[in-house]
Simulated assay, not measured.
Amino acid sequence: MPRFMGFVRMEEGVGTPPKALFDAMDVYIGEQAAKGVFLDGGGLFGTEDAVNFVVRQGEVSRVDGPYAEGKEVVGGWAIMQYDSLEDAVADQRDFAELHAKHWPEVTVISTLRQISDGPDAPTD
């Protein structure tokens, strides 16, 4: 059964989502978990305490948040499994619709990506 990662990106500093969205998400995620679709997930704090390790030209450097150059940040993530890509896409749209209904003043990008089960490129 294919697994997918869903995540939500939004502009940093837009504030806390309204309670109505949290309530709707609790119901939605509970239903998805009961069906065996939702495997794991959660929300993320802002980038003020984030740590990035940047690899550039063979050198590693540490960059601590917040990140002034970042316009969008990942605010939450989920690991899900579906019988088909079509089912995954339909549910991701439903998830996006929750945000449109309960937090319409914020631009949210809801992304779905299939998780690879192995190397996609030949190894040397």
Rank of each mutant, 00 (worst) to 15 (best):
V55A: 15
G13W: 00
L98V: 08
A20S: 11
V73D: 13
P2A: 10
F53N: 00
L112N: 05
K101C: 09
P119A: 09
T111V: 15
P66D: 09
Q81R: 12
L44T: 03
P66I: 01
L112W: 03
M5K: 01
S110Y: 14
V60Q: 00
V55K: 06
G15D: 06
R56S: 01
E86K: 12
R62M: 02
P18N: 00
V63E: 07
V54K: 01
V108N: 10
D26L: 02
V54T: 12
F22R: 00
S110P: 01
M5C: 04
K35L: 10
K101T: 13
E72P: 13
I79S: 01
P66M: 03
Y67K: 06
F7H: 14
F45Y: 06
V37L: 12
F4V: 06
I109F: 06
P2F: 10
K19P: 03
K19Q: 09
V74E: 12
R113K: 13
G58T: 13
V8H: 07
K101M: 09
L39I: 15
A34C: 02
D49K: 14
E48M: 03
E48L: 04
E48N: 08
D49A: 10
A90G: 06
A33P: 01
D40P: 02
E72S: 09
D23A: 15
T47D: 05
T107Q: 10
K35T: 09
K101Y: 08
S84R: 01
R9G: 00
D117F: 15
A24Q: 08
D91L: 07
L112F: 10
G118T: 10
Y28T: 08
V63I: 11
P122M: 13
G13R: 00
D64G: 00
D83W: 01
A100M: 07
A78F: 13
V73S: 09
M25F: 11
W103G: 02
R9Q: 15
F45C: 04
P17M: 06
E11N: 04
P122T: 14
N52L: 11
D49E: 14
L44N: 04
D49N: 13
V60I: 00
I115Y: 10
V60K: 01
Q57L: 04
V55H: 02
R113P: 00
V8Q: 04
H99R: 06
A20T: 09
E12A: 11
S116I: 12
K101L: 09
Q57D: 12
I115P: 05
W103T: 02
W103V: 03
M10S: 07
H102V: 14
Q57A: 09
M1D: 08
A68N: 04
G42A: 08
E11I: 00
D23M: 12
N52Y: 05
V74M: 15
E86T: 05
L85M: 15
L85K: 13
K19V: 13
A20R: 08
G65F: 00
S116Y: 14
W77Y: 15
Y28I: 03
R56N: 06
E86N: 11
I109D: 05
S110V: 13
Y82R: 05
E86Q: 15
R62F: 01
A78M: 13
V37K: 12
V37S: 03
K35W: 08
V37A: 10
